[in-house]
Amino acid sequence: MKKLESTLPNMFIVLTLIALISAAALGATYGVTEPILAEQARQRRIQAVSEVVPAFDNQPTDEAITPPDNPSVQLFPARRAGEAVGAAVQISTGAGYGGTIELMVGFGSDGTVTGLSVLRHQETPGLGARITQEGFRSQFVGQAPADELQIDGITAATISSQAVIAAVERAWQILESTGGIR
């Protein structure tokens, strides 16, 4: 077949056709994958919440509260048999060593930390990235940010450690100021 010549109508028609066909292919792919992706995102959030708070029987992710003065923070109340047993706070901090650290902090009804998980971070592998390790995170459990937190920072990763500690304290303050655990 001879090559199509570069006349204006030819170029116009061909580019339009290619764009239309591509758009149709993309639309079809999106239609198939979108429900799967939405479900995955939901599962991940439920998973993250249930890792840090005491056992609950409500749907914390459906009851999420966004404090008006802290729109980047989300609160997930956890209830069992209608009674408040705790809350998870999703919070991010820019005080780390490499970009944003996103945390999920769980609090029990007595105001102590029940769990901490690092959702996302870009700290230095082997140093700051150790904030994700059990040994560092488990120190928070049982301590109340209302008193002073007693945490051993990670050697050679003071900035990362401090960022997490400050974020946990801030999470508690925000939770308190929006009415605490209820």
Partner: peptide
């Protein structure tokens, strides 16, 4: 390739 006029081949390739 034969349906794409030479002058617009790069944008066409990029869209694909």
């Amino acid at each position: 390739k034969d349906l794409i006029p030479d002058k617009v081949r790069i944008p066409a390739f990029i869209v694909i």
